[in-house]
């Protein structure tokens, strides 16, 4: 049943993603000031949304793991952190490729860029910890604490453009409360891209989570077999 849902989500995300690509390159009008480089934004924002959603799931799942101590929550947090890291990397990459033609520099220590980079570093640390240490409950608990603390940076990234002086554009909602997209087709294109990335994220998360669950079960199975082998040897 869950494999059917996964397959359906996979095909749906592919279809919506192709629609979004068509809209980005053919349907949405070219922005007057930034020109063609503004089209990077249609996939840059959904990447940020997926990264934030993934890190939010890491925090929630880690909280549940610390509270209940059930391995399923740790597996969910690990899967979400990995996907969040992929999309956070894409946010930094696409942001840099947008900044060069618009600002004239690849990188600047702007508040939003800096807080996003800190977020990337913290989850990089989280994944390094998971990759280098064993699968013991102590490591899982420590990783859960890191996952929760790192997720505290997400709201800071979101409000950074309002808290500090910044050159990062507030495209979705400006300081005057309006949105920065001049044409309704731009808004629709962004919404379709957001839907495409959200479905893709759910599909990826289900897939990776199922894998991590299977890995956990395999580990237990391996331990049981080793025990049975010892008993068989004794008999």
């Amino acid at each position: 049943m869950s494999s059917m849902i996964r397959k359906g989500l996979g095909y749906t995300s592919l279809a919506v993603m192709l629609t979004a690509i068509f809209m980005v390159f053919d349907w949405a009008p070219t922005e007057a000031e930034q020109g063609i480089a503004q089209r990077i934004f249609y996939f840059h924002v959904p990447c940020a949304w997926v990264a934030f959603a993934a890190f939010g799931i890491v925090a929630l799942a880690s909280l549940f793991y610390l509270w209940l101590g059930e391995r399923i929550w740790d597996d969910l947090a690990y899967a979400a952190a990995e996907i969040g890291m992929v999309f956070c990397t894409l946010v930094l990459l696409t942001g840099s490729l947008w900044a060069k033609p618009i600002w004239g520099v690849w990188w600047t220590w702007d508040s939003r860029l800096t807080t996003t980079f800190i977020l990337w570093l913290m989850y990089g640390g989280y994944l390094l910890l998971r990759a280098s240490a064993d699968d013991s409950p102590q490591v899982a608990r420590f990783a859960a604490v890191v996952g929760i603390v790192a997720a505290l940076d997400v709201p800071i990234v979101i409000v950074s453009v309002r808290l500090w002086r910044t050159i990062h554009p507030a495209v979705l909602i400006t300081k005057t409360g309006e949105h920065g997209l001049e044409d309704p087709r731009m808004v629709v294109t962004l919404l379709v891209s957001l839907v495409a990335f959200t479905i893709f994220f759910i599909w990826l998360l289900m897939l990776r989570f199922a894998q991590l669950r299977a890995r956990t079960r395999l580990c237990r199975m391996g331990q049981e077999i080793a025990l049975a082998e010892v008993r068989a040897g004794d008999a």
Partner: peptide, 13 residues
């Protein structure tokens, strides 16, 4: 203008 950056960004994704 800036077409290369657009292609590079989507290729990276």
């Amino acid at each position: 203008e800036h077409f290369t950056f657009l292609v590079a960004a989507y290729s990276a994704i």
